[in-house]
């Protein structure tokens, strides 16, 4: 346990909180990669997921891709991309790997969110004369929001966990202190950084947990008897979107 005391001392040492390569800088780098990758992945996966969910076409393909993507070892992929693109492009390569990692869960959340909606609700929307755009924006998107957020949540967790690997191609982030700690046998440093990554992951997870709570439209919350996230399709969506690094 005494290693944890040392890790605490490392974490609270003022010297580690200022200058280049200090804790705030590492956390900043870590969050930068996470946010960048999540934004790019969301821009690709959400419209695509909504398209699949709205039209009901291409679902099998999306499931297949998500399954296959899970088998890819992110760690190896990172090295492979960096080697192929050249060391100068290691930043974009790393973000690309993180984007690839984040797409399947977001995609699953987006289309599953639309899929679990009662067909009668959508038929009713069509019957009162809504256009397809209106059905998508005013009915399907709000009702599918909880599952979409669930997808974004697990994607964020995976990305924040995997961003530690950025340090292996010299890109900093909290992984830097873990890698350096391992290399120099500085247990306080690697343990401290590991604890920081865990705290960061838990914090982001908590933010999404709160968002999910508020994402359910008021009318739905008043009328429902069961939790949206425990419907059969929702279950499948969460099962499909698991795998961390």
């Amino acid at each position: 346990m005494n290693l944890f005391v040392e890790a605490w001392l490392w974490l609270t040492d003022p010297l580690n909180w200022e200058g280049a390569g200090s804790i705030p800088v590492r956390v900043g780098e870590h969050l930068f990669y996470t946010v960048l990758a999540m934004t790019a992945a969301a821009l690709i996966a959400i419209p695509l997921g909504w398209l699949i969910g709205h039209t009901g076409r291409g679902r099998e393909l999306a499931v297949g891709i998500s399954g296959a993507a899970r088998a890819l070892p992110t760690f190896g992929l990172l090295y492979l991309f960096v080697m192929l693109a050249g060391v100068t492009l290691r930043g974009p390569s790393t973000v690309l790997v993180l984007v690839l990692l984040a797409i399947p869960p977001i995609l699953a959340g987006a289309y599953a969110g639309l899929e679990v909606i009662d067909r009668r609700t959508i038929d009713a929307a069509r019957a009162v004369g809504m256009t397809e755009w209106q059905i998508l924006w005013k009915v399907e998107v709000p009702l599918g929001l909880p599952l979409l957020l669930g997808g974004l949540r697990s994607a964020t967790l995976q990305v924040v966990a995997t961003a530690t690997l950025a340090a292996f191609v010299n890109l900093g982030g909290l992984g830097y202190d873990i890698v350096q700690g391992i290399a120099l046998r500085r247990y306080d440093q690697m343990l401290g950084a590991a604890i920081l990554v865990i705290i960061l992951a838990l914090l982001l997870d908590a933010i999404f947990a709160i968002l999910e709570r508020y994402a359910v439209p008021r009318g739905v919350r008043a009328g429902r008897d069961t939790d949206v996230r425990t419907t059969p399709t929702g279950r499948r969506a969460t099962a499909e979107s698991s795998a961390t690094t």
Binding site: M1, L3, F4, L157, V160, A161, T162, T164, L165, G175, I178, G181, I182, Y187, M190, L191, A193, A194, I195, V197, I198, A201, L202, D205, S242, T244, T245
Partner: peptide, 18 residues
């Protein structure tokens, strides 16, 4: 189990031994 799952693997490899 949800919390356990949020722990990044590299961090877990480092934290388990002590």
């Amino acid at each position: 189990v949800g919390l356990l799952y949020t722990i990044p693997s590299l961090a877990l490899f480092v934290i388990l031994p002590p």
